[in-house]
Design a protein around this nucleic acid. Structure first.
Lengths: 225, 225
DNA sequence: AGGGGGCTTCAGGTTCCTCTCAGCGTCACT
DNA sequence: AGTGACGCTGAGAGGAACCTGAAGCCCCCT
């Protein structure tokens, strides 16, 4: 899951990014409206957190421009409560939810999750993926193998999520990198192998199949016996 | 999938080529406009990445010339943001999308994929090709012969894919070479024979017919029994 | 300040692809 | 039937891709 934060208060942006990263999202941050619009237009984000007061281009205009261009990515607006801007206006321009500053971090996370869940429903994707005896609950971020819960770290979960969403298909290492790590990541792609390795250990060895030269594939339901 | 990059900044061209190759595309690079037009005219590319500022012939003119000649290959234009050239003009001349430098690599890949997807849908290409008792699933990278799965390596799969996509037609050795390896490949063309040989062994001897002096042909549905 | 957990890098080891080569078979044409 | 061109295929070297244990770093919690 990739999130884009468009927020010019750098301290706030940074702390949000940090927290959400810890939740297992891949988070990109930009500090001005024009740049935000540009990045969001690429369509590779699952949600955009958009401040209203922005240099370059204000949040309403970014939001309106995105909708005008046909993007239906969920948008969570951040409004200051000083009354200069109006919540209703945000919703009018096509935002899906708004949050009035100051807000608690917990609330933000809850809203983010709610929006992601709603978006998922809209497109017919269930938040819970069942796959043989593997059950991945993307909303609750829990994984079960048979009756046993398996504890995964944020990154482990994110990698598994990618594989589960496209179960049966080959997912390339590059695609996993793109979705799980953010665009500033310049590290070793080997990191994907490391995570696959630990996932295999924590889950079951045969579950994630390596397709040499192509990527990884979550095996479709193992032959029932 | 074959991509052509027309870009005179060699460093940029090289790094794009490297990345896209890693994504599994066969990538060719040329550094001037005239050469780009010439290669693109051959019609063997699935997408063209076209810089605007080019020696020989600028990107707009290449693009316009291609469209004038009736080619509908997707074109992704690269524009510098210095304002000398205008994005709209790129789209006017028939480009399908544009990207303003500097851009992140991830963005480029996303756009490339989007364009290829759009094109693919239009032509109704399915990810699964069925051909008699041979089934080739390009998304999962799996091949079935009857009920049995056949394990293929990356190159074997790529060769078979070429034959399957054009089932019933003769595909020349040169075409296979170009699609599976890229045009910079300087090795022995015999390599194609080697791979056809192993494919026959792994699949069924009669499936791939040699057409002497012309190439190979995947036989249309074998006589049902 | 110390400890722990998660993230990342690194390096050694392993697997198994890829490509080349060479000899032989097969085909088409005379 | 002979001949040359073309195609087939087994063997092996070399290397790419992948796996995984270990260790360092950073952040957070105690």
């Amino acid at each position: 899951m990739r999130l884009l934060i468009v927020e010019d208060e750098k301290r706030l942006a940074l702390s949000l990014a940090k927290g959400l990263t810890a939740e297992g999202y891949a988070v990109d941050v930009v500090h001005d409206g024009r740049e935000g619009l540009y990045r969001a237009s690429e369509g590779s984000y699952d949600l955009v957190i958009l401040d209203i007061m922005l240099p370059g281009m204000n949040g309403y205009r970014v939001c309106a421009a995105l909708r005008a261009a046909g993007h239906d990515v969920p948008i969570l607006m951040l409004t200051a409560k000083d009354g200069e801007y109006d919540e209703a206006e945000g919703l009018d321009t096509g935002a899906d939810d708004y949050l009035t500053k100051p807000f608690s971090y917990v609330v933000l996370v809850a809203r983010v999750k709610a929006l992601l869940r709603r978006g998922g429903q809209g497109t017919g994707a269930s938040p819970v993926h069942v796959h043989g005896d593997l059950k991945v609950d993307t909303a609750a971020r829990r994984v079960f193998l048979g009756d046993d819960e398996v504890t995964l770290t944020a990154k482990e979960f994110a990698v598994l999520e990618q594989l589960v969403v496209r179960a049966g298909e080959v997912v390339s290492k590059a695609e996993i990198l793109e979705h799980v790590w953010d665009f500033a990541y310049e590290g070793d792609p080997n990191i994907v192998e490391v995570y696959v390795s630990t996932l295999r250990r924590k889950l079951r060895a045969g579950l994630i199949r390596t397709v040499r030269g192509a990527g990884y594939r979550l095996e479709r339901v193992e032959a029932a016996r």
